[in-house]
Structure formats: C-alpha cells, structure tokens
Design a protein around this nucleic acid. Structure first.
Ligand code: MN
Ligand code: MN
Ligand code: ZN
Ligand code: ZN
Lengths: 130, 130
DNA sequence: TATAAGATTTATACTAAATCTAAATATAAA
DNA sequence: TTTATATTTAGATTTAGTATAAATCTTATA
C-alpha cells in the first residue's frame, strides 16, 4: 500500500529536480522555486527531498562536495564530474560484473552495490581550451 | 624543493592516521591523540590533516558520510564499506581500463580519475549472521 | 456539518563538520 | 639579539542539515 502523498510542496520540489538536468542541490532547488514565485520554508524543501528519496522518486547523490545533489533519474547509474566547469553528467554503463566479482574475492565482502564518480574534462571545456 | 615541514603536531597527527588502519575521521584522530595525552587544538588537527594531504602524505576520503576520513595509504585505490559494522577496507583492484574507455566514449569526457565506493557485508559480519 | 485525529508545513533553534580570524608562540634568518 | 616567517591556538563563523513544537491543512468519523 503506502500510497505516495504528493502535496503541492512535494510536487513542486520534485518538478524542480526533474526540470533541472544538472542534479541540483537543495539550495539550487530553493533558488529555482523562488524564481518561480513558489517559496517554501527551508525545512520543507529538505523534508520534501527526504520524503521523495524515501519513496523512491528521487535519488540522493553524494559526489564528494559539501552538499548532496538530487537526481530524478532513479535507475542505477553513476556520474562524471567536469573538473573545469563542475557539470555533472550521467554514466549509464554499469560497474563491470567481473570487477565486482574480483573485488568480492579480494576483500571477502559480499558486495551489494557501488557508487562511482568519474572525474575529468567535459567535451565543451576541452574545446574552449585554456 | 618545498621541503615538508613536519612539526611535532603534524607528526603526531600523521602517526595517528598511520597507526589506525581504519581510515579515521578528524574526530577519531583527535580522540586517539587525547588517549595518548597529546591534545591539540581542534583547528590544529584540521590544519595538519590539510597540510599532510596537500604535501601528499595523506589522502582525504569522502565516502558519503558526514565527515571526511583520512588514509595513510596514498597510492591510488578504492574502498569498500560494510553496511553492518561500518568498517572501511581497501580495494586495491583498479578501475578497469576498458570500462574507463567505454565511459569516455559514451560521455565525451576525458577521464582523469575515478573514486569508487563499494558497499556490502564484510566477512566477519557475514559469519555473525543476524 | 462539526469535530477530532492525523499529516504536513513552518519558523526557529540546534548540531556537526569544517573554516576563518587574529592573537600568541615558536622557529629560522639576518 | 632582533626581525621575519611560520605555526598553533581559542574562539567566532559558516554551511548543510536535523529537531522541535506550534500552526495549518487534510481526512475520517459521529
Ligand atoms: Mn544522474
Ligand atoms: Mn585506503
Ligand atoms: Zn566542463
Ligand atoms: Zn562488517
């Protein structure tokens, strides 16, 4: 059961994440809402992000920056961050199974998932060579 | 040149990380120093960890927890976290080159490095089955 | 409809991790 | 020694996020 209760605030927060392809932070979600004239309490945005993550409509990303980012794409995937402009793109290629098997053997862990962050320079930044 | 200036404080902090195989946080370093009767200012521990990281004697790890962890092993490697007991172990098997190549092709990035955190259950926890 | 129960939102206080500031110390150079 | 430079320190500040409790909204029930 456990029907998802999408209040106006939660819907607005969800849409703010969905229409920002760049994996926004809570602060960026706030900003976008404010731009639209839809301002909610700080805590409401956090509560909503947490709720939406709990019910599986969003994923929280910890990419090694100070603030968490949120992703409307909830299927399992990784990310790549441009060291120059900071943009975050999708990496849909999954962690190779043979690698996971090798890691399990070497560490004596049973691996349930993996989070990968690639770092590099995006196509755009590569062109606008410094 | 740029000789490394290992003050007493920095040396103590470095050793605290080296003799803790578990990738300690700044707070855990503080704690260990206090146990040894060597207590420094909060800021000194942070300054030292930053200095030691900058000169390459330590690596800072962001494993998705609130606090950074520090690693005396500075060669390139990954980590695996036990979901049950929280221990952090080394993953020495490097990211497969073919995978990196595939990701570069798919994303149009030039990848310079990758950070991988595996999650699972360690051998010890697997035995003490819940 | 009226009323109560439950859920959500809000403002505010609070916490944890880390950084900043500026004075006090220590170390090195002249 | 005197001066300059680097480091340490205590405490204030910042940032991201959580906790609390009152206010509001929504739903269920008499
Ligand atoms: Mn994504
Ligand atoms: Mn390590
Ligand atoms: Zn870029
Ligand atoms: Zn374990």
């Amino acid at each position: 059961m456990n029907k998802i209760n999408l209040t106006a605030q939660r819907k607005a927060v969800l849409e703010a994440v969905q229409y920002d392809d760049g994996h926004p932070t809570a602060a960026e979600v706030m900003e976008r809402l404010r731009e639209q004239g839809q301002q909610f309490a700080y805590a409401t945005v956090y509560n909503s992000l947490k709720y939406l993550t709990d019910v599986g409509l969003l994923r929280e990303l910890k990419l090694g920056e100070a603030a968490s980012r949120y992703d409307a794409r909830v299927d399992d995937h990784h990310h790549i961050v441009c060291k120059q402009c900071g943009r975050v793109d999708e990496v849909l290629s999954p962690t190779p199974d043979e690698w996971i098997t090798a890691v399990e053997k070497a560490t004596n862990y049973k691996v349930s998932n993996s989070h990968v962050v690639f770092e590099g320079v995006c196509g755009t930044c590569a062109q606008h060579k410094v």
